[in-house]
Amino acid sequence: EEWMVEKALMVRTGLGARQIESYRQGAWIEGVHFKRVSPSGESTLRGTTWYNYPEINKFIR
């Protein structure tokens, strides 16, 4: 699984929702560690946020 939603990321990493938000707003790079995608497939600020687990795992190492 490369891309996953927040709940799956929480299960895989043990991070809480606030921790994920903090990383997203600070250290993680949009387009690398996470992306927002609307149902139409376009990038957007209001779409579902998807997280790239392999890239996040590399960051944590």
Rank of each mutant, 00 (worst) to 15 (best):
E1P: 09
E2C: 12
E2G: 08
E2Y: 08
E2F: 08
E2H: 08
E2T: 10
W3I: 01
W3G: 01
W3D: 01
M4E: 03
M4P: 00
M4I: 15
V5Y: 07
E6M: 14
E6R: 09
E6F: 08
E6V: 09
E6P: 04
E6Q: 08
K7P: 06
K7S: 15
A8T: 12
A8M: 13
A8V: 12
M10I: 09
M10F: 03
V11G: 08
V11D: 14
R12C: 10
R12A: 14
T13S: 05
T13A: 04
T13W: 02
T13I: 05
G14V: 02
L15W: 06
G16A: 11
G16F: 07
G16T: 15
G16Y: 06
G16D: 15
G16Q: 11
G16V: 09
G16P: 07
A17G: 06
A17V: 10
A17N: 06
A17Y: 08
R18H: 14
R18E: 14
Q19T: 06
Q19A: 09
Q19C: 09
Q19E: 14
Q19R: 05
Q19G: 03
I20E: 01
I20R: 01
I20G: 01
E21W: 09
E21Q: 10
E21G: 05
E21L: 08
E21D: 07
E21F: 06
E21P: 01
S22D: 12
S22Y: 14
S22R: 12
S22A: 14
S22M: 15
Y23P: 00
Y23S: 03
Y23Q: 03
R24I: 13
R24F: 05
R24D: 02
R24C: 11
Q25F: 07
Q25D: 12
Q25G: 07
G26S: 14
G26H: 14
G26K: 10
G26R: 09
A27T: 08
W28N: 00
W28H: 00
W28R: 00
I29G: 02
I29T: 10
I29P: 00
I29K: 09
I29W: 03
E30T: 03
E30D: 07
E30A: 05
E30G: 03
G31T: 03
G31K: 03
G31R: 03
G31E: 05
V32Q: 06
V32W: 05
V32C: 05
H33E: 02
H33W: 02
H33K: 00
H33A: 00
H33F: 03
F34L: 02
F34I: 03
K35N: 04
K35R: 09
K35H: 04
R36C: 15
V37H: 07
V37A: 09
V37W: 07
S38K: 09
S38F: 14
S38M: 11
P39E: 14
P39I: 13
P39Q: 12
P39M: 12
S40T: 13
S40N: 13
G41N: 09
G41H: 09
G41K: 08
G41I: 08
G41W: 06
E42D: 13
E42M: 08
E42V: 09
S43K: 08
S43W: 03
S43L: 09
S43C: 08
T44D: 14
T44H: 12
L45M: 12
L45S: 13
L45A: 13
R46Q: 15
R46S: 15
R46M: 15
R46P: 15
G47N: 10
G47E: 14
G47R: 07
G47Q: 11
G47W: 13
T48Y: 07
T48F: 07
T48N: 07
T49I: 15
T49Q: 04
T49P: 04
W50F: 12
Y51L: 01
Y51E: 00
N52K: 02
N52R: 02
N52F: 06
N52P: 01
Y53T: 02
Y53G: 04
Y53E: 04
P54G: 08
P54M: 09
P54L: 10
E55L: 08
E55W: 03
E55F: 03
E55I: 05
E55G: 02
E55R: 04
I56F: 02
I56E: 01
I56D: 01
K58F: 07
K58Q: 08
F59C: 05
F59G: 03
I60T: 04
I60Q: 04
I60W: 05
I60S: 03
R61Q: 15
R61H: 13
